[in-house]
Design a protein around this nucleic acid. Structure first.
Lengths: 195, 195
DNA sequence: ACCTGAACACCGTTCAAGT
DNA sequence: ACCTGAACACCGTTCAAGT
C-alpha cells in the first residue's frame, strides 16, 4: 500500500492547512491533532511529515494564514484622506473586531509557542512586522521624529493587543456598562493626546 | 499496596504545587505532566486526583500562587507619598520586571486556557481583580470620575500587559536602540498626558 | 480511607516495508 | 518516489483491587 500520487505536495499542503483552519476554528488549537488532520484529508499520519517538518511548523503556517487575513482586513480600512488619529482608531477597532469574529484562530496565533530556545522563522516574523508597519505608517504622519514613531506604533499596538488578549481570555473583568470598544478608543485617544 | 497516610491532603497539595512551580519554572507549562509531578513527590499518578479535580484545576492553583507573588511584589513598590502618575510608572515597570525574572511562570498564567465553554472559578478571578484593584487605586487619585478611573486602570494595565506579552513571546521585534522599559514608560506617560 | 497499578483512549514522530 | 501501518515513547484520567 502506497504510491498514490493523486495530489502534488503543494496540493496536500493546502489541504492540510484548510483542514487545520477548520479544526482550529471549531475546536481551538488544543483540538488540533496530527491524526485528526490526516483523517480529514484522507491520508495517514505519516504523510503530514512529507509536507511539514512537524506539528509546530504546520501550526506556524496555519497562523501565518490568519495573520495574512488579518492584515488584509486592516489594510482595506485605511482610507487615504483620513487623518492619522482617526485611522489609528479604525485600525484598533478593526483589530478587535477580527479577534471577536475569529476567536479561536486569533487565539491560536498567540497561544502557540515554540519549544524553549527556538524562535519563529523569518517568513513568520515578517507577518507580524507587516502589521506593525501598517500602524507605523500612521504614527509616522504625526508630528514626531522617526524613533518616536516606531515606539508609538509598538506601544499603541501592544496596548490594543493587550486589551484584546485579556478580553478574549476572560481576564479583563469589565463592568457591564463598559464595552471593550470604548476601552480601546479610550486607550488610543488618550495615548495620542485627545485627538 | 496502599494506605500510607504519611501526609495529610493539605501536605500533598502543597507538595504538588511546589513541584509544579519548579517544573514550570524550568520547562515551561508544556513541560508539566501528571506523571512527572507524581514522580517528584513520590506518589503515583492516581494520587493527584485525590487532591485536585484534574490537571487544569492543578495548573489554576499553581498560577494563583504566581499571581499572589506578583501582587505581593507590586504592592511593596507602592509608596504612600508618591503621586499617582509616578506610582503607576513604578507599578508598570515592576510588572515587566517580574515577568522577565519569572518568564515561564508568568507565561503559564496566560498560556493556560480552560476547555471551550468553561471559565475560571471565582477564587482565581479574584487574583486577577486584585491586581487591577492596585492600579485602580492609583487612577482613582487622578482628577477623573469613577467610571473613567475604572476604564483607565483597565486600559492602562492591559496596555502594559500587551507590551509584556508581545515582548515575552518574541513578537515585539523592537529595534536594538529601544528598550522594553522605555516603551512601557512611553505608553504610561502618554496615556496619562505627559505627567 | 488511602493509594496503587494497570488499563483506556488518546498524543507526536519515525521508519521499514510495500507499490 | 510516495505513502502506509505499525511501533515507540509519551500523554490525562479512571477505577478495581489491595492494605
Amino acid at each position: 500500500m502506497a504510491r498514490r500520487s493523486e495530489h502534488s505536495k503543494e496540493e496536500i499542503k493546502s489541504m492540510v492547512l484548510g483542514a487545520a483552519k477548520g479544526l482550529i476554528e471549531e475546536e481551538g488549537l488544543a483540538g488540533l491533532s496530527a491524526r485528526k488532520l490526516a483523517n480529514q484529508i484522507g491520508y495517514t499520519v505519516g504523510s503530514l511529515y512529507m509536507v511539514f517538518e512537524n506539528l509546530d511548523d504546520l501550526i506556524l503556517h496555519a497562523n501565518a494564514v490568519t495573520l495574512d487575513e488579518l492584515y488584509q482586513q486592516l489594510q482595506v480600512t485605511v482610507v487615504e484622506g483620513d487623518n492619522p488619529q482617526a485611522t489609528l482608531q479604525i485600525l484598533a477597532q478593526t483589530y478587535i473586531e477580527y479577534a471577536m469574529a475569529n476567536p479561536n484562530r486569533w487565539n491560536a496565533v498567540f497561544e502557540h509557542h515554540l519549544p524553549e530556545g527556538q524562535q519563529a522563522p523569518e517568513w513568520f516574523q515578517q507577518r507580524v512586522d507587516q502589521i506593525f508597519a501598517l500602524v507605523e505608517q500612521q504614527t509616522s504622519r504625526l508630528n514626531i521624529d522617526r524613533k518616536k514613531a516606531v515606539m508609538s506604533a509598538r506601544a499603541l499596538w501592544s496596548g490594543v493587543h493587550g486589551i484584546c488578549v485579556l478580553y478574549m481570555t476572560n481576564k479583563l473583568h469589565l463592568p457591564d456598562e463598559i464595552q471593550v470598544q470604548s476601552l480601546v478608543e479610550d486607550l488610543v485617544s488618550n495615548y495620542l493626546g485627545k485627538l
